[in-house]
Design a protein around this nucleic acid. Structure first.
Lengths: 215, 215
DNA sequence: ACAAAAGTGTTGACTTTACACCCATGA
DNA sequence: TCATGGGTGTAAAGTCAACACTTTTGT
């Protein structure tokens, strides 16, 4: 807090960019092959060095647009997860890593395809990113249905019960009964069940309800 | 994550150093008057600039021993809370602040007295430290009885039901029934009720049970 | 004995979980 | 009309809050 006596730390922002894919019923994590020296060519979380005076949210945006090639408008929400301070995590030297989540709306995805891998089957990543993903998974699960920014960012403004079931299953590890999840969602302020039903599924079956965020 | 294009951010570590005082039945926050230029003389959370390659826990230790004059052995546990990134929070320039908690054992307190203020009545602090304390309060309350390192650090290796009631009241805002808190504690792994009873209270009344951490 | 404060047992309300049954759709 | 899968209602199980009552101390 006083005069810097030693050279200050580098701070990187590493992002868990998430989107839900209704077709494969999976939550996908955005990763990109590294362009430069350490771990060049290997997959890694999108990350940037935090600029002086830069806000975490802006750095997150920079990482997702720059490294993943996702359009700015596609980013729906962001938030903090945790900080990783292992000095050896970057071979170039000690670097603090602040992990954040960001949700991406598949509808506004540009053409250039970043690599999206299922959150349930993340391949080995560069640096300590495997550990970051592993440590942050329970934090993400905890946010679902309790942090509305996160939940609505992931599911979009409108979604069906079936999609809600899928997302919950991926993040928490088990699939709730549809009835019970419906009651959970009924208790969430700003979320309402509509009269609409989604287009029915290829295999038949009753078409699911559509839910919508209002606030 | 690549070559630094802009000057990197300064990172400070600001600590919510907490101890429980059975005599006044209060949770106390350690603060210290600032020695140097910005806000000199005003009270502030103990904080230091994070050194290059320094671990957060070490910086926390440095802040608590250096700024509060608390002995190294008195620090019982530490943990992360949140990161504050408002660029204008430090008049000297943009500085990231990582807030952490640390628990201090009153038994090992040195002679030199830092300022301990009740967590329920924190005076105005320098920088944005008022905001940090306000934002972190619910995070602390959430950790009680769920994070054993935090809880045992705050209450010590042995404590009475009465003290547990007091700490819970300060952090959560209302005082549970002794019976119900006892049942909550029964469910915590590593915590056991002993056969001992504490010395009785000045005003009379039944002496409370002693609880002890085992693991 | 009385007041104070902690501990015990129990009850009712509420929440969570589970499941049997009903409905809507494609094949 | 059958298989598929979501929706409804409900009942059992579990959790939580409240309180009457008992126990142990100081005065």
């Amino acid at each position: 807090m006083d005069a810097p006596r030693i050279e200050s730390t580098l701070v990187s922002v590493d992002v868990l960019a998430l989107r839900f894919d209704p077709a494969t019923r999976a939550v996908l994590l955005g990763v990109a092959p590294r362009a430069l020296d350490p771990f060049a060519g290997e997959l890694a979380l999108p990350g940037v060095l935090l600029g002086r005076g830069e806000r975490l949210r802006d750095a997150t945006r920079r990482a997702v647009t720059g490294k993943l090639g996702v359009a700015e408008e596609a980013m729906t929400a962001t938030g903090q997860l945790a900080t990783f301070d292992e000095p050896s995590r970057d071979p170039r030297g000690p670097t603090l890593s602040i992990a954040l989540w960001a949700t991406v709306d598949p509808a506004h995805l540009g053409g250039a395809g970043p690599t999206w891998v299922p959150l349930t089957a993340v391949p080995p990543l560069a640096f300590d990113h495997d550990r970051i993903v592993a440590d942050c998974r329970p934090l993400l699960a905890d946010r679902l249905w309790r942090d509305t920014a996160f939940t609505s960012g992931l599911l979009g403004r409108e979604f069906t019960t079936a999609q809600a079931l899928d997302v919950t299953e991926v993040l928490t590890g088990d699939r709730p009964y549809p009835a019970n999840l419906g009651r959970t969602m009924d208790r969430i302020p700003g979320l309402e069940r509509t009269e609409q039903h989604a287009a029915s599924l290829p295999k038949g079956g009753r078409p699911p309800l559509v839910w919508r965020w209002v606030s």
